[in-house]
Nucleic acid binder design. Sequence first.
DNA 1: GACCTGCTGCGGCTTG
Length: 711
Amino acid sequence: MSFDLLAEPIRRYVRDQRWDALRPIQAAAIQHILASDDHFILASRTASGKTEAAFLPILSKVDFRQPGVRVLYVSPLIALINDQFQRIEQLCQYLDVQVTKWHGEASRAEKKKLVQVPQGIVLITPESLEAMFTNAPYSIKALFDNLQYVVIDEIHSFLGTDRGIHLKSLLSRLADVNPPGFSVVGLSATIGDYAEAKRFTGDEARTKVLLDRTGKEMHTAFHYFSDEDETGLPLALLKDLYKQTSTSKVLVFPNSRGRAEEIAVKLRKISDRVGGHAYYFSHHSSVDKEVREYVEAFAKGTDRHPFCIACTSTLELGIDIGSVDKVVQVDAAHSIASLIQRVGRSGRRGGEASQLLLYATSPWSLLQSLACWLLYQEGFIEPVRTARRPYDLVLHQALSITKELSGCTSEQLVERLHRNTAFAAVEPAEIRAILAELVRVDWLEEVQRELIIGVEGEYVVNSHNFYSVFKTEPAFKVAHAGKTIGEIPLTPQVREDENLLLAARIWKIKYVDLAAKKIEVIPAQDGKPPLFFGGGGVVDPAIRAKMLQLLFEDSHFPELDAASEEALRELRREFAIYPLTEVGRQRPVLQKEQKLVLYTFTGTRVSRSLEFLLGALEVPFEHNEGQSSFTLSTSPDLLPALFEQLRLYLDDVELLLTQALDTDDSLLDFTKWGRHLPRPFQCAILQERYYDFDGAKQFLETMQVVLACAE
DNA sequence: GACCTGCTGCGGCTTG
C-alpha cells in the first residue's frame, strides 16, 4: 500500500483530508519517488492531484533538518505560486517545514529571512532564479547547494519554448553549485512527446514517466453560425451562447482579447435586457491584474451564482478558479494541447462530466475545430521541438554567467556554456564567435585576460528587462477615476472620444497622455473591442492533414448540429471536384480564371517557409493560412517548373535569409536576444525555430497536385 | 481577425 510508505505526519495529513483513496498517479508517485532518486515526469489529467502526488513522497523522504533549501518548486506563473503556496504550506504544517514564495511580488522581508537561515521549500519563477544568479550569486550558493528535489509545475508550458531553454540552462547552472545533485519531478496534463519531456531534466536515461491515461467523460456539441454578413460575432451566435450558458458557470475561449471583450460586453447586455445575472467578466493579459484577481476570487468563492468569463490562455493553466460547468470554444483552438487544458477546466467536481461547446463562424474554422477535436479523441497531442542550437539564449546566458562570476577567462566561459545541458549541441567555436561579437559591441570587455561586463553591457544586464527571454510590447495604462482597468497597445483607434471595450465594460476615451503612456476613460454605452497586436499560434501539420482527410471522407458526427453538418457538407461538395486518391501525397489545386489556388494543408512553419521562398522568387501570391492556401497568378503547366525553382532556392536558403535580413530585420521579432547575434547565427535560429525548410523540401519533392477547374 | 509568461536595486516618500 502506497499510503503505508508515507511518513507518519504525512499519513496524518492524508487522513485529515478525508479522501476516499489516493489517486492512481499519487499511489504510483509515492512508490517510485520513495524507492529511487531518479527524475520523474508525472502525467495525469487536470485536477487529478499531481501536486500532492509529487509532494506527499518528497516530504516523506527529504530530511528537512539538514541546512539549506531542500526542495525548489518552479512555476511558469506567479498566480500559480500563490495558489500552490496555500496548499503546500497547509501540508507542511504537519511537518513544521518552512515554505517561502520567491517572485517579484513576494515579500522582501520573507526573502531576507530565508537568506539568513536557508531552509525548507522555495516556490520560484524562472525569471526570479535568473535575477538571483545575476544579482546575488552568493545567495544561490547559500540557498541551493543542498537541494534534493526540483519540482517543475506545468512542465509542458516550458517544453519546446525559449523560456524552457532558459529554465533548463538555469537548472544546469544550479547543478553546478550542487555536487551531490538533485532529482527533478515534472508535472503536466498535456505532454505530447515524452522523450522531449525526459530530455528536459538533463538526463533522459535516468528519467521515468508515470502516466495515468484515465480521461473524463465529456459531452460535446458543435454549433455553427456564419459570420459572412456581419461585422463582429454573429448576433444569432451570441443569442445561442447566452441561452446555453445563462444559468451555468462558464468559461468562453474565443482565441483573442478583442473577441473576449466583445463576448463579455454583449452577453452582459443581453442578460441585462432579459433580467439575467450580471456576472459577466473578461480575463486576459490586458485586463488589470487586480481586476483579474477579483474575477478569479469571484469564480472560486461562488457556489450559488452562475458566471461567465470570456478569456484567453490566461485561464488555461492551473490557476484555481473552482469548478466550471461548461467550457465554450469559439472557433478552432490553435493547438490540441490548448484544447485539452481548456476542457480540463470543467467538471472538476467528483464524477461530473465535462461539457464542451464548440462554435464555428466559418466552414474552415469548423473543419479545423472538428479536426482538433477528433485528434484529441484519438489521444494525439502536438509533439514539441526543442531548439538544439539556441544561439540567442547562449548570448543571454553568456552575459548572465559573466555577471554571476564577476568576470572569468574566455575559456572558462566557453567551457561553462558548452557543459550546460541546454547548449550541449552548440560547438565551442560557435560560442567563441558569439563572445567575440559581444566584445565587439562592448557588452563584454577583455581586461587582463578576463572577460567582464562591458560599458554598454552594464546597461543591458542592469536593466530590469534582462531577466526574461521573451519580448513584450509596450502598452498604455487605461484608468478611470484613479482606478486602473488594464493596459492596451497604442493603435490608431486610441484617440480622444473613441470608445473601447475593456474588462467587460464600455469606455469613452477622455484624454491620451502620450508622455505618461496613460489613457483616461469614462463609462460609455457602446464601443468597439480594442485592437491588439501580436503574432498567432503555430498550427501543427497533423491538424491540417486531418482537415484534408475529413474533406475526402464521408464520416458523420452526431455532435454536429444541423447548421454545422450543412457547412461541412457544403465544403466537402466544394472539394468533391478533385479526384484525390491519396490524401497523404496529393494536394488539390483549383484553376480559376487566370489564377491557381494551391491548397497545401501544411502546418504553419512549412507554409511560412513556402511563403518566404515565393517572396524570394518574386512570384506574386496571396497566402491564406486559415484556408491553408496560396493563390498564384500562373497556369497549371508552369506549376512543376515553379516547384522545381522553389526546390533550387532551398539550396540557397542561407544566402536568401541573409539578404532578407539586410533589408528588413523584422523577421527577428520572434527573438528577444537574437537581434544582437552575428548574421549567420540569426539565419540559423530562423531556420531552426521560425521556419521548417526541411518540411517545405519534403512537401515540394513528394506532393502531387491534383487539378480541377472552377465551374 | 489569433496567446501568454516575468522583473532588481535604490532613492525618496509617508507613516508609526
